[in-house]
Amino acid sequence: MRKVTAVVLTIAMSLALAACGGKAEDTVTTEESGKTEEAENYTIGVAVDTLDTQFWIANYQAIKDRAEELGNITLVEAIASADANVQNQQIEDFIAQDVDAVICMASDGAAIAAAVDECNEAGIPIIMNNRPVVEGTADPDAQVLSDNKQMAYEEMKWFIEKSKEEGKSYKCLMLVGNLGDGNAVERRDGYQAAVDEFGEGVVEIVLSVPTEWDHEVALAGLQSGLASNPDIDMMILPSDFLWEPVQTALTEVGKWAPIGEENHVACISFDGDETGRQMMADGYCWADAAQSAALQGETCVDTALSLIKGESLPSRDIKDSGLLVTCDNFEEVKDSF
């Protein structure tokens, strides 16, 4: 019995020590920032959806770098592993910790409304990072977003004009992200709008394949889509995250070939992350609408700081207009995204 009691107490002591450890770290941060200037110290909760894409990793790193650069910000973080219910609980825990602001990469644009309401009631500013709240369900203090629809529209418009110049026409498969994600909906709408407006006789979207932002779902949809529509010679990727299943599916049907080769399938993509950059460099991708992960992360921290200080923002939605990278301008702009 004594041994068992000892085990229980050891676990409890470990917890207590860990708790004390956390507090000590906070003190160090405070002291460090105190050396630089007599700025007030703030704590910001960062609610992360997942870190399984290069965009999110770069975005999150930028948040950490910016906080370190400013010196008076302590970040507390939580990752939801794409579970909306868990994310809401984590944000409630941020509120319990009395954080000064919350930066949120939402797992679900509708379910996050409950956490936004909680933050509003607690008087804690919440900034949506890259993914908006579904319109009309809640009112976040700020949203740092890519101008998804416009970027997708401009990219498709460029591709159609390029195809007209070359006298080509395409039958297109459009991959669609998770429709609970406002970004996915806006990108789909932007591509579709440009095709409706300019694409007659040049680009025909013959199939939309839902992916739920999941490689397995995307691959299964691509395989059946390519089997039932063997004449598909163009693809729209709503994120560079989806290059892997696209490459696998096209390789299986012998169509993974760079621009200029006989079996080439023309692809345009979105994000402008490392994979997208590589696909542009290797000649598999015609255009990539690059959003700046780092800029958006930094803007979130700066916006949080402004809101904490009670400053008003010019508008609730802060849009990153992005950069259209094409096979024509890639060499010029490859170092700027």
Binding site: V8, L15, A16, A19, D93, I95, A96, A122
Partner: peptide, 30 residues
């Protein structure tokens, strides 16, 4: 129950904000 109580007491004593009404309320709600 014993393990839970030990952890709960440690939380009350050592974890900042654990004992706040808001947190206890959310904990029970979850």
């Amino acid at each position: 129950l014993f393990v839970f109580l030990v952890f709960f007491i440690c939380g009350m004593l050592f974890v900042d904000k654990f004992a706040s009404a808001y947190n206890i309320k959310n904990y029970l709600k979850n």
